[in-house]
Simulated scan of single mutants.
Amino acid sequence: MKKLLFIGLIGFGGWQYYSNNIEEKNSFSNVSFSAPIQTKTQTVPRPSYTCDGRQHCSQMRSYEEAKYFISHCPNTKMDGDHDGIPCERQFNK
């Protein structure tokens, strides 16, 4: 009799475990998978600068261009006081 009760408890526990796992798996079947909503992001076009031999502030068209040149190009002569700000007089920085 004890064996039968023990087998019944094991069977009931197994059934509970099985039914919980089936419910979890089936709960995902009701979920609708669709493509994520995409929001439009505006990207500001960045001018592409290249190191073309220009070295002086008088050759720069913008502060951003001068900043690029002192950061990426060798032998520039745009930052006399070496503070990282190029062409201070020309662009009022």
Score class of each variant (00 low, 15 high):
Met1Phe: 08
Lys2Ile: 10
Lys2Thr: 11
Lys3Phe: 09
Phe6His: 03
Phe6Lys: 04
Ile7Leu: 14
Gly8Cys: 12
Ile10Lys: 03
Gly13Arg: 05
Gly13Ser: 14
Gly14Trp: 01
Gln16Tyr: 07
Tyr17Val: 08
Tyr18Arg: 04
Asn20Gly: 01
Lys25Ser: 11
Ser27Val: 01
Ser27Thr: 02
Phe28His: 11
Phe28Thr: 06
Val31Asp: 05
Val31Ala: 09
Phe33Gln: 15
Ser34Gly: 13
Ser34Lys: 14
Ser34Tyr: 12
Ala35Tyr: 11
Ala35Met: 11
Pro36Trp: 03
Pro36Met: 02
Gln42Ala: 00
Pro47Glu: 09
Ser48Phe: 08
Thr50Cys: 02
Cys51Ile: 02
Arg54Ser: 09
Gln55Asp: 07
Ser58Val: 09
Ser58Tyr: 12
Met60Pro: 00
Met60Tyr: 00
Arg61Glu: 15
Ser62Thr: 14
Ser62Val: 02
Glu65His: 01
Tyr68Leu: 04
Tyr68Asp: 04
Tyr68Gln: 02
Phe69Tyr: 15
Phe69Trp: 10
Phe69Cys: 07
Phe69Leu: 12
Ser71Lys: 14
Cys73Gln: 06
Pro74Gln: 10
Asn75Thr: 06
Thr76Pro: 00
Thr76Asn: 07
Met78Tyr: 01
Asp79Thr: 03
Gly80Asn: 14
His82Asp: 15
His82Ile: 13
Asp83Cys: 06
Cys87Leu: 08
Phe91Asp: 07
Asn92Pro: 01
Asn92Cys: 05
Lys93Thr: 14
Lys93Tyr: 04
